[in-house]
Design a protein around this nucleic acid. Structure first.
Length: 589
RNA sequence: GCCCACGUAGCUCAGUUGGAUAGAGCAGCGGACUUCUAAUCCGCAGGUCACAGGUUCGAAUCCUGUCGUGGGUACCA
């Protein structure tokens, strides 16, 4: 069954063609949801734009189109208003049958992509030399949400965790560890590593001789020196163990199969440089091999070089990133590669995307997208740090989230036992952190505010999770198993058919039916906050309905079944929507 | 200097890719609970959409400029 907007667009195109001729059939109907219920359900705004082409008054055009719109199964009313808006009111039976189809669909009416695209999503990608910190949060959860949404659409998604296991930072660490004897110690924890990395960084900044030795260690490592290699492996094992603990706590879908570390591309680097050289893009500059990308300048106003091979013979991140593009587009045949990385690296991405295009790797039409995001700020409006001014450990944030959620739940639902509360606190606390991040427009910075993210009102995870809980509570209380509902059976006209009588029911129905469009819009824009806004508005619509329309105490069985069906649709949509954001639900809270 | 984002109610944020009177939450004021979980709902108040031009039937949204904030400016990632 085509969705409502598609149906309306078809009717409008046919009406325009009938009124003004076939050459106008392809005019965009500019169909929008009505901004106000008094304007009906949808409005078509094409009459104003046609005025010039037709040399007629917009209102007359709108009237002419309106006259050709059939009133019946789809529309119960069409009115011209304002400068030439055509306000459309839908037949509630159509809404009900659409809802019945949605109810019967285990995908809630969301179509499967056909043909599917092959999409690589590069996210999380922490630097393994350090413990995971707050700076890794956004890439990890935004990337995971995007991957889940594309996957739900039926796209062929490949997750790549492009961990930093190969760069300059390992030179520092190796040199320092060899000197301090860490490699021979038996107790090697990630927290030690964190401290050691800081020490190494200080030495690197203050001791030129150390810095020189450290740089040489990178070249050793990349060329296969056994000692460097052995210590490096120890480091990696420990770091990945820690990373997986954090992922598990966050409920992120990345596994070891998704690891595509920088080192993975090592063998490909010479070939990549050669390909760029063959394309005539490489220049020599102070011993380094560089590419000049048009439109980029340094502080002196000179063309900005991008070093694909460093003066000391080592390879930096531009080489690795280019190798990764080649691998993803040529070997994996990706149609789309999505990089979920801090906005501050925007210029870097623009440069190597351009190089990839110039080398000729994108001739298949593959699209490279940088999904940038802003910085997490503290309450003081400056980048989020601990009171001592250190980076905030991600593990600490997640623990605190669960602790705080636990207190909120203890306050609101004292009858839950300790174990239940613990489980719920985990879902609510972690969900709150993730939702707070995802619900903001990702380009912008946001202030990390515990009280706001754990608030039970407003656009927060706890509010949505609670809306879900309330619905589940109705089914428990009424001892109704949702799977016994049919939505009116085939065709939606049975005894338990959905009936949209109250305006709150109608508003809820229209809201529910938007889901497929919202999913599509998130997949196109790669902006998960649109799904958050939708879920919040859905929960709001539900609460209005809940206030006005008794469900279990409805005056007839038919009305009760219809409302139960609506409730179940809302619950499933909330649960599915949150799941696409990587957030769980609970049955009570 | 150059380049890139962002600027919407007192605060935190949306605004369906150009549509009607710019919407939520918090904070403030006033209402509604022997409940299907009031963890909610209803109402009031709150705006020069940073500013100035431009594009057109129509601009918070697009283009130009100005101001403000933040970021980037090769061999760290």
């Amino acid at each position: 069954m085509p969705d409502i907007q598609t149906t309306l667009e078809r009717l409008l195109s046919e009406a325009v063609a009938k009124a003004f001729g076939n050459e106008f059939a392809d005019a965009d109907p500019i169909l929008r949801q009505a901004t106000n219920p008094k304007f009906g359900d949808y409005q078509a705004n094409l009459a104003m734009g046609l005025a010039k082409r037709l040399n007629q008054k917009p209102r007359d055009i709108a009237e002419a189109i309106k006259e050709k719109l059939p009133i019946g199964d789809v529309l119960t009313d069409a009115q011209v208003a304002g400068p030439g808006f055509i306000n459309l009111t839908l037949n509630p039976d159509l809404l009900a049958s659409q809802l019945a189809a949605m109810f019967k669909s285990d995908r809630l009416g969301v179509a499967v992509a056909d043909p599917p695209m092959k999409v690589v999503v590069d996210y999380a990608s922490p630097n393994l030399a350090k413990e995971m910190h707050i700076g890794h949060l956004r890439s990890t959860i935004i990337g995971d949400a995007i991957a889940r949404i594309l996957e739900f659409q039926g796209q062929h998604v490949t997750r790549h965790n492009h961990i930093g296991d190969w760069g300059t930072q390992f030179g520092l660490l190796l040199e320092h560890l060899i000197e301090t004897g860490w490699a021979n110690s038996t107790d090697t924890s990630i927290s030690d590593l964190n401290v050691l990395y800081k020490e190494a960084k200080v030495r690197d900044d203050t001791d030129p001789a150390f810095a020189e030795r450290a740089r040489k260690r990178v070249v050793d490592l990349q060329s296969g020196d056994p000692q460097a290699r052995k210590i490096w492996e120890q480091l990696i094992v420990e770091s990945i163990r820690h990373m997986n603990q954090v992922f598990s706590c966050l409920g992120v879908k990345l596994t070891d199969d998704d690891l595509k570390p920088e080192s993975f591309y090592n063998d490909r680097l010479p070939g990549v440089i050669e390909a760029i050289e063959n394309a005539g893009l490489i220049r020599d500059c102070e011993g380094a091999k560089v590419v000049y990308v048009e439109g980029f300048f340094n502080k002196e106003g000179e063309p900005l070089p991008m070093a694909v091979k460093k003066a000391d013979g080592g390879f930096g991140y531009p080489a690795t990133d280019l190798a990764a593009v080649q691998y993803r587009v040529k070997d994996l045949q990706a149609d789309r590669v999505v990089y979920v990385v801090d906005s501050r690296q925007k210029d870097h991405f623009r440069q190597f995307f351009k190089i990839a295009a110039d080398v000729g790797w994108l001739t298949s039409g593959a699209e490279l997208v940088h999904v940038g995001f802003g910085t997490i700020m503290g309450l003081d409006g400056k980048p989020f740090k601990t009171r001592e001014g250190d980076t905030v450990r991600l593990a600490d944030v997640l623990n605190e989230a669960v602790d705080r959620a636990s207190k909120v739940i203890a306050d609101k639902a004292p009858d839950l036992n300790a174990q239940e509360r613990e489980e719920i606190a985990r879902v609510v606390g972690i969900g709150a952190v993730k939702y707070f991040d995802l619900s903001n427009y990702r380009i912008k910075d946001y202030v990390f505010d515990w009280d706001r993210m754990l608030a039970l009102e407003g656009n927060t995870a706890p509010y949505l999770q609670n809306a879900y809980v309330r619905i589940r509570s109705i089914f428990r209380k009424g001892e109704v198993d949702p799977s016994t509902l049919t939505g009116g059976g085939d065709g939606g006209g049975g005894a338990d058919a959905i009936k949209l009588e109250h305006e709150a029911e109608r508003a809820l129905a229209l809201q529910l039916l938007q889901l497929p469009r919202i999913i599509q819009s998130v997949a196109d824009s790669l902006e998960p906050h649109r799904l958050c806004t939708y879920l919040y508005e859905l929960a709001s619509s539900f609460h209005k309905f809940y206030e006005k329309c008794p469900v279990l105490a409805a005056d007839t069985d038919a009305r009760r079944d219809s409302r139960l069906t609506l409730c179940d649709l809302v619950a499933r949509t909330l649960k599915q929507g949150l799941e696409l954001l990587g957030i769980n639900t609970v049955e009570r809270m």
